[in-house]
Nucleic acid binder design. Structure first.
Lengths: 216, 216
DNA sequence: TAGATTGTTAATCGATTAACAATC
DNA sequence: TAGATTGTTAATCGATTAACAATC
C-alpha cells in the first residue's frame, strides 16, 4: 500500500475529510456517488476530487462513479488506519484526560498503551482503563514496551525537555497539543500539531474581519 | 485596523505562529530581529515573512529589521486579540471541560460567558467559575446576553440540530470541536474547526508513509 | 447503443521564492 | 559613508480548475 511518493500536503490533509463524508454516506446506505455529487456536499470541485483520488489509483468507474464502500475502505487503507501504532500520552490534566477518553484510537490506527504525569498524586488513577504512571518510570516503560508515538498534553514550559527525553528514548512521532513548537527541534521527527490557541486566534481574526467597518 | 481585503488564507493561518514566536523572543528580552533570523528559527523563508507582513503594512526598517515588541503588538492587533467577543460553550463533557479550563480566552479576544449541557445532573457545577446551565435555558440566556460565538463540544449526532438552534438565535460564529461538519450548513457563518480525528489520521498517514517499505 | 462519468492532460490561477532598488 | 535589511517587483513553482477523450 504505502509508501506513496510525491503526494502533496494539501491532498493528504483532505483525505480525512473525504473519509468522514464517505462514512456518513455509508451510514445512510448510499452505495454509489459521483465526483459531482460529492463535490456538492463537500463544497469543493468535482475536478479536485478526481485529481486527489487519482494520486492513489483509479477507484472509480466511468459512467457510474465511485462505490461508497469501496472508496471509504481505500481511503482508510491509504491513511494507514489498519495499523496499530502504540502511543503513550504525557500529561493527565484536563486536556490529556479529554484526549484519552474522547478519541477512538483504534479506529485511527493507534492504541493507547500508557499515560504519564509528573503529579505523583495522580498515580494509579484509571483513565480509559489505563493507570496513570509517574513520569519517572518513562524510561523503564519504554524499554519494555515498543512505543511508536507520544501524545503531548503538557504545559508549554516543560515541552522542550520532555520532547528531548522522548527523542532519546527513540520516539520519533508526536501528536503535540502543547503550545510549544517542537517541529524544528530535530529533522527526523514527525509532528502533528494541534494548536488550539492558533485556531482560536484565527477565529478571532475572521470574526473581526467580517464585522469591523471598512476603512474609509 | 480591520477590515483587510484580499488577504489569502495561507497568510492568515501563519499569523498566530508568528505571534507565538515573537512572544517567545519577547520573553527572552530580544528587542530586534531580521526576517532572516526569524526565518531560521521558524523554518520558512525570509522572503515569505516579508511578503506576509507587507500585506498589512511596512512594520520593519531597512538596515535594521523589525522591533520584536512592535511586531508582536501589530500582529495581535491584526488578529483582533484586543476584542472581547462573548462566547458560550456547549457540552461540558471531558472535552468541553478541558477547553473551558485550558484556554486563555481573554488573551485571544474572547470571554467565556456561559456553559451549557443537556445532562441535568451537571447543572450548577462550576467550571472556570462558570455554572453549567441546562441547555433548555439556551434561548432565554441568549436573549439576555449578547452572544458572539459558540464553542461546540457535543457529540457528532447532536451537532446539526444544535447548530440550527444556535443559528436561529442569531449566532454566526462557531468554534467547532464536533466531528460533524457544519461549515456548509449556512453560507453566512464563520466556522473554525478543530477536527482531532482528522489530525490523528494525518499523523497515522505520515507515520505509515515514513515507515512502510516502498513498493518494488 | 447512448448517456454518464471517469481518468488525465492542458490551461489557469495563486502562492512562494528570488532578486534588487530603496533607504535606514 | 558603507553595510544591512527592508519593501516590492519579477520569476518560478505548485495547486486548482477546465476540458475532453476514453470507457463503462
Amino acid at each position: 500500500m504505502h509508501k506513496y511518493e510525491n503526494i502533496s500536503v494539501p491532498v493528504i490533509r483532505r483525505l480525512p475529510r473525504y473519509y468522514r463524508f464517505l462514512g456518513e454516506l455509508l451510514q445512510k446506505d448510499v452505495t454509489r456517488i459521483s465526483s459531482r455529487e460529492l463535490s456538492d456536499k463537500m463544497g469543493l470541485t468535482a475536478s479536485q476530487i478526481r485529481q486527489d483520488l487519482n494520486c492513489f489509483g483509479g477507484f472509480g468507474q466511468q459512467g457510474y462513479g465511485y462505490s461508497v464502500r469501496g472508496l471509504y475502505d481505500q481511503i482508510g487503507k491509504i491513511l494507514g488506519l489498519d495499523h496499530n501504532y502504540s502511543a503513550i500520552l504525557i500529561g493527565a490534566g484536563n486536556l490529556g484526560k479529554a484526549v484519552a477518553t474522547h478519541m477512538s484510537f483504534e479506529k485511527r490506527g493507534f492504541q493507547l498503551i500508557g499515560i504519564f504525569d509528573s503529579d505523583k498524586s495522580k498515580e494509579g488513577t484509571l483513565i480509559r482503563g489505563i493507570p496513570v504512571t509517574d513520569i519517572e518510570e518513562l524510561e523503564s516503560f519504554c524499554s519494555q514496551n515498543k512505543t511508536d508515538a507520544a501524545i503531548l498534553c503538557v504545559p508549554k514550559t516543560s515541552t522542550p525537555q520532555l520532547a528531548e527525553r522522548l527523542y532519546q528514548l527513540g520516539i520519533r512521532n508526536f501528536w503535540n497539543f502543547s503550545h510549544y513548537d517542537i517541529s524544528n527541534m530535530y529533522d527526523d521527527i514527525i509532528v502533528e500539531n494541534v494548536h488550539l490557541n492558533d485556531s482560536l486566534m484565527i477565529l478571532c481574526y475572521r470574526i473581526s474581519d467580517a464585522n469591523d467597518v471598512p476603512e474609509a
